[in-house]
Simulated assay, not measured.
Amino acid sequence: MAALGAAGVTLGARAVPAEPFDIVYPRIRPGGDVHAAFALAVLDLAMKTANAAYTVRQAEIVMERGRALAELAHGHNTINLHWTSMEAAAERGLNVVRIPIHRGLIGYRVFVIRKDRQRDFDKIERFSDLKAFTCGQGLGWIDADILKAAGLDVQTSTYETMFKMTQSGRVDYFPRGVVEAFAELDGRQHREPDLVVENRLMLKYRSDFIFYVATGQEVLADTIEKGLVQAYRDGTYLRLFNSHPYIQDALVRTKPASRKTFHLENPYLSEADRRIPRDYWMS
């Protein structure tokens, strides 16, 4: 791990304050977010490794990705931290901690489909075959642009609506990260009982969630990055990754290594994102 170093903000530039950091992150979905547990565990590891006291809470107001990033950029103090997909245009002068939270697994995309459609996806052997199908993505997600750039037919709507559109057949498939797909469907069987995770295909591109920190909160960003870099160096991050049920259950259930995988380019990364050390990613 000797190659690991600061990928974003400058480490050690500012001392950690004696007062606890008050970290506020956005409420992404009305019904709660099943994905928050691992990101919060990574945040906790980073802060403790940096010997920084903190409190953390979720904002009351629901925010789509675009609004959350705008709130961070404008310094409205409603939130000061958000974890979301890396994207050059999203940085907008924010403090960016360029260490992938899930080691790139957000860019390993499996498909949520109707279970009676598996036979159609069984026929797909080439990426060009997939272009005959329509996929869905959330409003404001950089993933929609990545998939469009690859030549796929993409429709966008809200996160909740996407499941309904897949259930009703208005879209053929809804790509989700391998750590997202089963966790989401486990909580939705009473609403969309016909949805399953497609069992043989995967898209893969360079992407993951990273921590974006509000304008004017450079010390918080420095602290998170300092802690994460050290947690990688001392092995505690990988121990968390290799033991956390959110990650490990997803890998067991999706079996990414056994899937037919189509590799896509992500043209929306910043140059700094492209320089993130290889050791922070899964091989």
Score class of each variant (00 low, 15 high):
V16G: 05
A7M: 07
L147V: 08
E64L: 10
F127P: 08
G66D: 14
S243V: 01
R253D: 00
I124W: 05
R92H: 13
R188C: 03
V197M: 13
A183T: 06
D122A: 15
A7V: 03
V62T: 14
H35D: 09
S243L: 02
L139C: 07
V16C: 06
E71C: 08
S283F: 07
K255D: 14
A7E: 10
G5E: 13
P245I: 05
D116T: 13
L251H: 06
F211Y: 15
A59N: 11
R126N: 14
V42N: 09
T261Y: 04
Q189P: 01
G104H: 04
N242S: 05
I146K: 03
R233I: 09
T161R: 15
V229E: 01
D129I: 09
K164L: 15
A144I: 08
E87I: 00
R170W: 09
G5M: 08
D116H: 13
F38P: 00
S85F: 09
L11H: 05
D273C: 09
T156H: 08
E180W: 09
V219L: 10
A70H: 12
E64H: 11
K115T: 08
Y108H: 14
Y232F: 15
V252F: 06
G66A: 10
R119E: 13
M282V: 13
A59W: 02
D186V: 06
A214V: 01
V197W: 13
G136A: 15
T161D: 15
T78G: 03
L152K: 00
A3W: 07
R57N: 10
N199L: 01
F121K: 02
D33F: 04
L72C: 01
F133G: 00
D129V: 12
A37P: 03
L185I: 13
I28C: 00
V213K: 01
A221T: 06
R103Y: 00
V110C: 06
W83K: 02
D44K: 14
T84F: 03
T215S: 13
A272K: 13
S270N: 10
R176P: 01
A2L: 14
Y246E: 11
R239I: 00
Q167R: 08
E180R: 07
A13F: 03
V97E: 02
L81N: 02
V219K: 14
M282C: 04
D186P: 04
V252L: 12
R27S: 12
K123Y: 04
A90S: 15
H102N: 14
D208R: 02
N266C: 12
E265C: 00
D249G: 05
D22M: 05
T134A: 14
M47N: 04
H82C: 09
Q58Y: 07
E225H: 07
D172C: 09
A183Q: 12
V110L: 06
R119Y: 10
V197K: 12
R278F: 05
M63C: 07
S207D: 15
P267D: 02
A50W: 00
V16R: 04
W141D: 00
H263Q: 10
A257V: 07
L251D: 04
L238R: 12
L81Y: 08
M47L: 15
V197P: 02
A18P: 00
I23F: 03
V252H: 11
F174V: 02
T158I: 12
T261I: 06
Y232H: 11
D279R: 11
I224A: 05
M86I: 12
